[in-house]
Design a protein around this nucleic acid. Sequence first.
DNA 1: TCCGATTTGTTCGTATGTATG
DNA 2: GCATACATACGAACAAATCGG
Lengths: 376, 376
Amino acid sequence: MSTKYDIVKQEIQSRILDGTYQPHQKISSESELMKQFGVSRHTVRAAIGELVNKGWLYREQGAGTFCADRSLDNRSSSGVTQRNIAIITTFISDYIFPSIIRGAESFLSQHGYNVSLFSTNNDHENEKRILEKILTEPFDGVIIEPTKSAISNPNIGYYLNMEHQNIPYIMIHAYYEELEPLSITMNDEKGGYVQAEHLIQLGHTNIVGFFKTDDLQGVKRMKGFIKAHRHYGVTINPNGIVTYDSSDKVNKPIQTFMKLLDQGVKPTAIVCYNDELAISMLEVLREKNIRVPEDFSMVGFDDSLIGRLTAVKLTTIQHPQSKMGETAAKMIVDLIKEKNNQPKKTNNKVQSIIFEPSLIVRNSTKILEGKTVTTK
Amino acid sequence: MSTKYDIVKQEIQSRILDGTYQPHQKISSESELMKQFGVSRHTVRAAIGELVNKGWLYREQGAGTFCADRSLDNRSSSGVTQRNIAIITTFISDYIFPSIIRGAESFLSQHGYNVSLFSTNNDHENEKRILEKILTEPFDGVIIEPTKSAISNPNIGYYLNMEHQNIPYIMIHAYYEELEPLSITMNDEKGGYVQAEHLIQLGHTNIVGFFKTDDLQGVKRMKGFIKAHRHYGVTINPNGIVTYDSSDKVNKPIQTFMKLLDQGVKPTAIVCYNDELAISMLEVLREKNIRVPEDFSMVGFDDSLIGRLTAVKLTTIQHPQSKMGETAAKMIVDLIKEKNNQPKKTNNKVQSIIFEPSLIVRNSTKILEGKTVTTK
DNA sequence: TCCGATTTGTTCGTATGTATG
DNA sequence: GCATACATACGAACAAATCGG
């Protein structure tokens, strides 16, 4: 995999798949590629040779090398419907993802589809590699949880190519706004609002919020957090909002939280991006001998299993989990049907779905001492 | 047709067609061909390269170039290798399975394979449906966790058919004994032995054991449990061994355990089939105000995440989890390689792997009051 | 129609890396 | 350890086709 011609080959392949090279368009000449990659002509020719052999490019002596049009050539040759669905998530084994995947797998296998799994680890490079794979192989539909949905995505070209090749896809949890895709999401802003509202109604006024902001979910939950404070006229502590990324999710929130607890005016409650974070924070509080909920209240998000197993059962926001997976599966199957039966009446068109959040009150939140419950 | 490499190519082709080169026979080396035709090595390689691409020859570094066997060359219809691996587990989202799947997925996707997921919910009908699907579609290999491995399997025919069709498969966690397949397992009997031994060494003599016995793992752990008692000369309470199935795993163990706790001579410790059960039992004890480990000791199995998150951290048996998934993935890839390179020497044949269990002592076990620690 | 610049096609030489037996 | 054989990579030269002027 580390040979020079293979690198050149991969890169050219990427340019084809992400739409840089359109069908019948002339690609860079051999001498240009030599300069671009700093390799000899022999190496460039070896790379191009393999792609010509695969049918991705064709050469014309004297004219140049061109991108082939693979749109209607091969994939229906075998005649047999493959019925493959790809599910791309950021993580596979952690947290609530297994439940989502189970929901989707269960529905899809009942409807005769194979489910292939991919995880990006919230990294754009991995996402790219996976999208290349999906575009190269016969998938009938794709369910995607976007990678780093809050920031601009370098792989948009691949999604456009997917539309070109008429492969239906839907996004869950969040979506890339440029694409305006069909999606299944939570109302995350509302969720963040409800988290904060609950604590405010319990009398808390010094609440910290921790949000993972490389994904859109976190950005929106933060927005809701702020909105609730404004609505109830509670000022937000200047240090009261902490953001972090997937990359520093293990350490940064914990360390920042510890500092916040050591300062003069201590917060009395925390809104957590999700239950996973809440569990970490619970550990911090336990080490500092701060009792939950007597001394400190916390709200999680997602109603994950681990939040129900801990000594202190978490107050949290409900997440549809396996239901979301099933809904996504149903939607992608509908899209595939719609694609195949073009003459069919499109009376009930497939539409995006937004799940409304609801609060689940357990044992991690409590009325602040000396306060009475506020109601709207 | 007048180029040198084309002449070389034609000549080699002729030698294949007229039988000079028989299937799997080594053809002249590149340097020999250089002499024979008076051309450069590059030219020879270009000629051979085209024939390799057509599927008439195959090259093996260090060994030589060989004539391919095109007699039974069927599946080249699509030309493209699919590289699909199926993973069949009993459950997808629960417990330690996500970790196992992640380990396998990570390795396989790095090696260019797609991973398709199936779950049987430990039901033979589902298993049958999935096996039919796999036999019908182009999978290169299968990783299986057997369904109800302790009882006779009605789908053996499908596995035999898989062998017929030359689809490599391996089993994890357990295996159907009739098939004697390649497998990756725990030494479950040893595991059950270690669980019981630990409690016995802590002075416990009235230990109950709960085992799920529709899978072989449970049967073997139970065997180890009994063996440990015999070895240390501890008599087993007649009601001290409780077995249950996947179907009644939610209720039966809990109810039986409650009855045991209400009887005259109470047990002082429990060996659990796995951490999942242990967590349920912990809940029962909490409701009855029996403190762990002060009043009661318990040992789990699998070292699952949930066993580390509870208030009382479980003493348990280590399970390789994602490591097991990765090992399984590596093994299946080796098997596929072995299958494809028939002429290659099978010097290091793929072999079954058994992981040895080791005890992880945490906070759910304690020396029985009024006893001293026993050592072997 | 021809010219010249560009681009791919063929062929040689050489060197080093890596797997096999 | 050694010879053999294939794998990768660099450089150079000339041939053949294309395309704009």
